[in-house]
Design a protein around this nucleic acid. Structure first.
Lengths: 149, 149
DNA sequence: AAGTAATTGTTGCACAAGCAAATATACCGC
DNA sequence: GCGGTATATTTGCTTGTGCAACAATTACTT
């Protein structure tokens, strides 16, 4: 019942709020991206990460970290996107274990279509979340994180 | 280039940070809970939600919302926990469509064992995240959300 | 220079998730 | 009360995910 226990409960509460907001946003993004661009959230995340990368190529492991996915899931995710012609695998010459992935033309084209959908959904969902008392404080805190970038 | 585009980018950045922190915490919780209490994160979430409920019983749909899971996933999750003897289904008399779930003795016992693991992992992981420049501001913001509870 | 350890990516397997359909019950207007 | 609609939960099916084992390449150690 002391200060220490309070801190524990505050952390648990913060985590629940974080998880709730995350789940809400992810579900909405999933619906809109799937519906309007045939992309899942992770697929969008990978394409977006690739497009924001200098030279537009990343190694499998960077992709895995960027998408918070396991190595095996990343392999198969890249397979799917490659089968759809949205990106290509490129062996790197310097480290022959590594494999680069690079957006194709249709990959960046699809991403260009999907990005407005993504951004609009994000805006709408955050506005919705702001109406939920439990979530509002976190929503308000988000834009203040990196004001200086 | 304008204020509007900046807001879009700020939101996207905030979402990426949120997702990254969420993924990190969930992965760590998954490891420690699975390792020390044979519970997945969602399973813990459900047991915890039940224990924090007045009367210790909830309907399937409340459980689905609390765990950010679909109805069908909730059914099977409750099946698993019921098979392990951690909770029981109870038909409600007033609305015979509804089904209450209630913690059993071993359910709350296991939860009591798992909770310290959960809390310690949360504390440790947040401390770790605070060392990551990208995540630190969000970690700092979390405890300030509901100071008045 | 050889051998061992560490890293990178892929595959086999089991499991949990979502969607849509099915079932059962409640509610509403008449 | 009766038909139609809405809600609550479960089941069939398909798909994506993680873990462990594996293959290929690089780095380290002596």
């Amino acid at each position: 019942m002391g200060i220490k226990d309070d801190a524990v409960e505050v952390r648990a509460q913060g985590w629940r709020t974080l998880a709730a907001l995350h789940g809400l946003i992810e579900a909405e993004l999933e619906r809109s991206l799937q519906g309007q661009a045939q992309l899942s959230v992770v697929e969008y995340t990978v394409l977006d990460a690739l497009s924001r990368q200098d030279g537009w190529h990343m190694r499998m492991q960077q992709l895995a970290r960027a998408s918070a996915l396991s190595a095996s899931a990343t392999t198969r995710l890249v397979n799917r996107l490659e089968d759809r012609g949205l990106l290509t695998r490129i062996l790197c010459a310097d480290d022959r274990r590594g494999i680069y992935t690079e957006l194709t033309g249709s990959g960046s084209k699809l991403l260009a279509e999907a990005r407005p959908v993504h951004d609009a959904t994000l805006e709408r969902t955050l506005a919705e979340a702001q109406q939920v008392p439990e979530l509002a404080p976190l929503v308000d805190a988000l834009p203040r994180l990196r004001a200086g970038v």
